[in-house]
Amino acid sequence: MEMWTNIRIGLGLLVLIIGILFFLLEIIGIIKYKFLLNRMHAAGMGDTMGICLSLFGLMIINGLDFTTAKLFMVILFLWFASPTASHLISRLEAATDEELGRHVRIDIEKEELEK
């Protein structure tokens, strides 16, 4: 029984550390890229994959509990909230950047974005 607990905690810590590595990658991407839509690619990776792996690791460490259900609720909320936030930020950037055509190709009228 003791052995199984140790294996569970070790597995959870491994998954948690992989999640923290995703956060490190996020920071490296934020520093490396120069344009905001590239930066959002890196940030979105950390927002979804990093925190999902971290909280899954914590769930494995914690075992079957009410706290685990609440951690799963956090993950569920982030799955909906993070893409919405990314969409809003990219829309803001595309609407307010005067020199957007220097970085990306624009196929639609800019007036449509400012609503």
């Binding site: 956060f23 996020e26 940030a43 925190i51 914590l58 936030a85 307010t96």
Partner: peptide
Amino acid sequence: RVGDRIVCVNMMGTMVMTIIAI
């Protein structure tokens, strides 16, 4: 730009959430 700041604030929120869960 303003967008960079908002992205960074969002990232900070994510990391603080992880800290609280840990």
